[in-house]
Design a protein around this nucleic acid. Structure first.
Length: 215
DNA sequence: CACCAGGCAAGTA
DNA sequence: TACTTGCATGGT
Protein backbone atom coordinates (compact mmCIF):
# COMPACT_ATOMS: atom_id res chain seq x y z
CA UNK A 1 0.00 0.00 0.00
CA UNK A 2 2.49 2.59 1.17
CA UNK A 3 4.93 1.18 -1.34
CA UNK A 4 2.75 2.13 -4.29
CA UNK A 5 2.26 5.59 -2.79
CA UNK A 6 6.00 6.11 -2.54
CA UNK A 7 6.52 5.01 -6.13
CA UNK A 8 3.75 7.32 -7.33
CA UNK A 9 5.23 10.26 -5.45
CA UNK A 10 8.62 9.53 -6.98
CA UNK A 11 7.23 9.36 -10.51
CA UNK A 12 5.24 12.54 -10.07
CA UNK A 13 8.19 14.49 -8.71
CA UNK A 14 10.54 13.13 -11.33
CA UNK A 15 8.13 14.18 -14.08
CA UNK A 16 7.93 17.64 -12.54
CA UNK A 17 11.55 18.36 -11.67
CA UNK A 18 13.47 15.97 -13.91
CA UNK A 19 17.08 15.04 -13.11
CA UNK A 20 18.52 17.12 -10.31
CA UNK A 21 22.17 16.04 -10.44
CA UNK A 22 22.74 15.71 -6.72
CA UNK A 23 24.69 16.32 -4.48
CA UNK A 24 25.87 19.87 -5.28
CA UNK A 25 29.63 19.49 -4.86
CA UNK A 26 32.61 18.67 -7.04
CA UNK A 27 34.41 16.02 -4.99
CA UNK A 28 33.53 13.37 -2.40
CA UNK A 29 35.37 15.39 0.24
CA UNK A 30 33.49 18.57 -0.58
CA UNK A 31 30.24 16.62 -0.31
CA UNK A 32 31.16 15.20 3.10
CA UNK A 33 32.07 18.66 4.40
CA UNK A 34 28.81 20.03 2.99
CA UNK A 35 26.85 17.28 4.73
CA UNK A 36 28.14 18.46 8.11
CA UNK A 37 27.83 22.18 7.38
CA UNK A 38 24.23 21.96 6.14
CA UNK A 39 22.88 20.64 9.45
CA UNK A 40 19.76 22.70 10.19
CA UNK A 41 21.04 25.38 7.84
CA UNK A 42 20.07 26.88 4.49
CA UNK A 43 22.20 25.47 1.67
CA UNK A 44 23.02 28.95 0.34
CA UNK A 45 24.89 29.75 3.55
CA UNK A 46 26.79 26.47 3.24
CA UNK A 47 27.90 27.25 -0.32
CA UNK A 48 29.40 30.52 0.86
CA UNK A 49 31.30 28.67 3.58
CA UNK A 50 32.63 26.03 1.17
CA UNK A 51 33.70 28.72 -1.29
CA UNK A 52 35.67 30.39 1.48
CA UNK A 53 37.37 27.12 2.45
CA UNK A 54 38.32 26.64 -1.21
CA UNK A 55 39.66 30.19 -1.46
CA UNK A 56 41.85 29.51 1.57
CA UNK A 57 43.04 26.35 -0.21
CA UNK A 58 42.04 24.21 2.77
CA UNK A 59 39.48 21.89 1.14
CA UNK A 60 41.34 18.62 1.65
CA UNK A 61 41.43 16.28 4.66
CA UNK A 62 44.92 17.16 5.86
CA UNK A 63 44.88 20.94 5.38
CA UNK A 64 41.52 21.35 7.04
CA UNK A 65 42.51 19.11 9.94
CA UNK A 66 45.72 21.03 10.57
CA UNK A 67 44.08 24.46 10.36
CA UNK A 68 43.49 26.30 13.62
CA UNK A 69 39.97 26.06 14.99
CA UNK A 70 39.66 29.84 14.94
CA UNK A 71 40.59 29.89 11.26
CA UNK A 72 38.08 27.20 10.33
CA UNK A 73 35.37 28.84 12.41
CA UNK A 74 35.92 32.13 10.60
CA UNK A 75 35.81 30.46 7.17
CA UNK A 76 32.53 28.67 7.88
CA UNK A 77 30.93 31.55 9.73
CA UNK A 78 28.12 31.92 7.19
CA UNK A 79 26.89 28.39 7.78
CA UNK A 80 25.87 29.19 11.36
CA UNK A 81 26.75 27.23 14.53
CA UNK A 82 30.33 27.82 13.41
CA UNK A 83 32.00 26.85 16.69
CA UNK A 84 30.19 23.56 17.04
CA UNK A 85 30.54 22.78 13.33
CA UNK A 86 34.28 23.38 13.55
CA UNK A 87 34.43 20.71 16.27
CA UNK A 88 32.27 18.38 14.18
CA UNK A 89 34.44 18.78 11.10
CA UNK A 90 37.56 18.17 13.18
CA UNK A 91 36.00 15.11 14.82
CA UNK A 92 35.19 13.64 11.41
CA UNK A 93 38.65 14.45 10.05
CA UNK A 94 40.31 12.96 13.12
CA UNK A 95 38.30 9.77 12.55
CA UNK A 96 39.22 9.76 8.85
CA UNK A 97 42.93 10.11 9.57
CA UNK A 98 43.03 7.64 12.46
CA UNK A 99 41.03 4.90 10.78
CA UNK A 100 41.71 5.35 7.06
CA UNK A 101 44.91 7.40 6.73
CA UNK A 102 42.83 10.40 5.68
CA UNK A 103 41.46 8.58 2.62
CA UNK A 104 37.76 8.62 1.79
CA UNK A 105 38.41 5.89 -0.77
CA UNK A 106 39.70 3.63 1.98
CA UNK A 107 36.82 4.58 4.24
CA UNK A 108 34.25 3.63 1.61
CA UNK A 109 35.84 0.20 1.25
CA UNK A 110 34.08 -0.68 4.50
CA UNK A 111 30.82 -2.60 4.45
CA UNK A 112 27.87 -0.17 4.45
CA UNK A 113 26.23 -0.85 7.81
CA UNK A 114 29.56 -1.33 9.57
CA UNK A 115 30.69 2.07 8.33
CA UNK A 116 27.37 3.66 9.18
CA UNK A 117 27.69 2.53 12.77
CA UNK A 118 31.25 3.88 12.98
CA UNK A 119 30.19 7.23 11.55
CA UNK A 120 27.40 7.47 14.12
CA UNK A 121 30.04 7.11 16.85
CA UNK A 122 31.70 10.32 15.65
CA UNK A 123 30.42 13.24 17.73
CA UNK A 124 28.54 15.54 15.42
CA UNK A 125 27.46 12.93 12.89
CA UNK A 126 23.89 11.75 13.33
CA UNK A 127 21.58 9.64 11.16
CA UNK A 128 21.03 12.11 8.34
CA UNK A 129 24.62 13.30 8.11
CA UNK A 130 25.93 9.74 8.13
CA UNK A 131 23.53 8.67 5.40
CA UNK A 132 24.24 11.76 3.30
CA UNK A 133 27.95 10.99 3.42
CA UNK A 134 27.37 7.31 2.61
CA UNK A 135 25.02 7.96 -0.30
CA UNK A 136 26.26 11.16 -1.89
CA UNK A 137 29.96 11.08 -1.05
CA UNK A 138 30.43 7.30 -1.06
CA UNK A 139 27.82 6.27 -3.60
CA UNK A 140 26.56 3.58 -1.22
CA UNK A 141 22.94 2.31 -1.27
CA UNK A 142 21.25 3.94 1.72
CA UNK A 143 18.23 6.24 1.91
CA UNK A 144 18.56 9.71 3.47
CA UNK A 145 15.66 10.88 5.63
CA UNK A 146 15.45 14.59 6.42
CA UNK A 147 12.98 17.13 7.77
CA UNK A 148 11.40 17.61 4.32
CA UNK A 149 10.96 13.86 3.84
CA UNK A 150 9.21 13.60 7.17
CA UNK A 151 7.03 16.66 6.59
CA UNK A 152 5.91 15.62 3.11
CA UNK A 153 5.09 12.06 4.18
CA UNK A 154 3.21 13.30 7.23
CA UNK A 155 1.14 15.75 5.20
CA UNK A 156 0.08 12.96 2.88
CA UNK A 157 -0.81 10.67 5.76
CA UNK A 158 1.79 8.07 4.87
CA UNK A 159 3.57 8.24 8.23
CA UNK A 160 2.73 9.84 11.58
CA UNK A 161 4.93 12.04 13.75
CA UNK A 162 5.91 9.14 16.01
CA UNK A 163 7.79 7.25 13.26
CA UNK A 164 11.51 7.01 13.98
CA UNK A 165 14.26 7.82 11.51
CA UNK A 166 15.06 4.15 11.11
CA UNK A 167 11.43 3.24 10.47
CA UNK A 168 11.05 5.81 7.71
CA UNK A 169 14.34 4.76 6.17
CA UNK A 170 13.25 1.11 6.25
CA UNK A 171 10.02 2.06 4.50
CA UNK A 172 11.91 3.51 1.55
CA UNK A 173 14.56 0.82 1.50
CA UNK A 174 11.95 -1.91 1.54
CA UNK A 175 10.44 -0.32 -1.55
CA UNK A 176 13.35 -0.51 -3.94
CA UNK A 177 16.27 -2.11 -2.12
CA UNK A 178 19.86 -1.55 -3.17
CA UNK A 179 19.10 0.99 -5.85
CA UNK A 180 21.63 3.80 -5.43
CA UNK A 181 20.32 6.01 -8.21
CA UNK A 182 16.77 5.72 -6.92
CA UNK A 183 17.77 6.70 -3.37
CA UNK A 184 19.93 9.51 -4.70
CA UNK A 185 17.29 10.97 -6.95
CA UNK A 186 14.36 10.47 -4.59
CA UNK A 187 15.93 12.35 -1.69
CA UNK A 188 16.92 15.18 -4.03
CA UNK A 189 13.36 15.40 -5.35
CA UNK A 190 11.93 15.51 -1.83
CA UNK A 191 14.28 18.28 -0.78
CA UNK A 192 13.41 20.31 -3.86
CA UNK A 193 9.73 19.77 -3.23
CA UNK A 194 10.16 20.84 0.37
CA UNK A 195 12.05 23.97 -0.55
CA UNK A 196 9.48 25.10 -3.10
CA UNK A 197 6.15 23.81 -1.86
CA UNK A 198 6.25 22.36 1.63
CA UNK A 199 7.40 25.02 4.08
CA UNK A 200 5.91 24.86 7.59
CA UNK A 201 3.49 27.58 6.53
CA UNK A 202 0.96 26.54 3.78
CA UNK A 203 2.04 27.12 0.14
CA UNK A 204 0.78 23.71 -0.97
CA UNK A 205 -1.41 24.99 -3.82
CA UNK A 206 1.19 24.65 -6.57
CA UNK A 207 2.82 21.47 -5.27
CA UNK A 208 2.81 18.70 -7.92
CA UNK A 209 1.74 16.25 -5.20
CA UNK A 210 -1.37 18.18 -4.22
CA UNK A 211 -3.68 16.65 -6.81
CA UNK A 212 -2.32 13.16 -6.32
CA UNK A 213 -5.16 11.63 -4.30
CA UNK A 214 -2.98 9.45 -2.10
CA UNK A 215 -4.16 7.13 0.68
C1' DC B 1 9.57 42.51 13.17
C1' DA B 2 9.12 37.05 13.30
C1' DC B 3 10.19 32.89 11.23
C1' DC B 4 12.85 29.46 8.89
C1' DA B 5 16.82 26.56 7.10
C1' DG B 6 18.76 19.42 3.74
C1' DG B 7 20.60 18.37 12.80
C1' DC B 8 22.93 16.98 16.75
C1' DA B 9 24.29 16.22 21.50
C1' DA B 10 23.85 17.06 26.27
C1' DG B 11 20.97 17.75 30.07
C1' DT B 12 16.79 16.67 32.68
C1' DA B 13 13.08 13.78 34.72
C1' DT C 1 13.09 6.33 27.14
C1' DA C 2 11.20 10.85 25.93
C1' DC C 3 11.31 15.60 26.06
C1' DT C 4 13.89 20.28 26.21
C1' DT C 5 17.54 23.40 25.15
C1' DG C 6 21.76 25.53 22.99
C1' DC C 7 24.02 26.32 18.95
C1' DA C 8 24.04 31.21 14.94
C1' DT C 9 24.10 33.10 10.36
C1' DG C 10 21.51 35.09 6.50
C1' DG C 11 17.28 35.23 3.57
C1' DT C 12 12.14 36.14 3.24
Amino acid sequence: MRVKQLVKIYETLYDYFGDLHWWPGETPFEIAVGAILTQNTNWRNVETAIDRIKSADLLDPMSLYLAEDAVVADLIRSSGYYNIKTKRLKAFLSFLHQEYAGSLDKMFCEELWTLRKKLLDVKGIGDETADSILLYSGNMPVFVVDAYTRRILERHGIVTADWSYDEIQALFMGTVPQDISFYNQYHALLVNTGKHFCRPTPLCDRCPLVSLKLS
